[in-house]
Amino acid sequence: MVKHGAIRLVYIVLQYIIGVLLFIVIGSLPVLLRDLTYDFEGYFTKIRELSVKIFTLSDLTYNGKHDMISAVMGRFFYSMKTLGTAFFAALILAFLLSYLIVLFFGKKKDYILSFIEIIRAVPDVLWMFLLQVFVIWIYKSFGMKLVQTVSLGSDNQAVLLPLISLSLPIFLFLTQIIVLKIFEELDKQYIIFAKSKGLTPIYMLNMHVIRNISQDLLGHFKTIIWMMLSTLVMVEYVFNMDGLMLFNIKNLSVELFVFTCILFFTPFFILYRLLDVRRDPR
């Protein structure tokens, strides 16, 4: 038992180290391909240099002179806070909407689902531009400023619009999956049994269906994180938020980029492994 756990731990640590090395190898590619010069020598030097720096966590700089860690950490937590808030907001809203659909619009679910699926194709940038223009239009025509549209300095931070535009794609995606899974689950035998026992639909959903579909939802967690990370880049760019992604775009540096990826990777890696252990607690 203990031995098995130890082997598993070693395997996980190994996987993490491979992941970090992969980030270094791929993240350094801009050095190799800079202006298509195929600078192999510089590339391998960079990989070696970066590996030493990252595994010892020392001498990390951007622009060659400023110390990175102090500049990066605050922005990283800011980005993660935005990401987390948007995720949970999307999750809660998606559950509310799916309950609404399941309980009251069960007959129309095919139309609603295909509408969601089609509307999901709209590029996320469009939502951001539309939201900005909507707020500005209200300001122009009614003279009232609802929310900040673009972050300008630390006093005027845009909060609501970035959150909405970050969570909207996820919200649609989650709603679609949850509704589909719930209806799949409602076709099963035990639901008929539960119904004949006289349980209320709400009770059935909360106690049985949600528990049974939660595994499937966790399976989509990786896709959701992947979608959110690429939207986050655009959200920070469009709303000028002082997060880690925008910091990357402003200070183009291989070291910073690799370190950023590792920073985002680490918490989710731990989370995934914990989920794996929970699913398969051997």
Partner: peptide, 20 residues
């Protein structure tokens, strides 16, 4: 392949394309 999903696609494409 798991860590690869942590490269924000936009960002890596931006880095690789910018100089060219």
């Amino acid at each position: 392949s798991e860590p690869l999903s942590f490269f924000p696609q936009t960002l890596i494409a931006y880095f690789l394309l910018r100089t060219v």
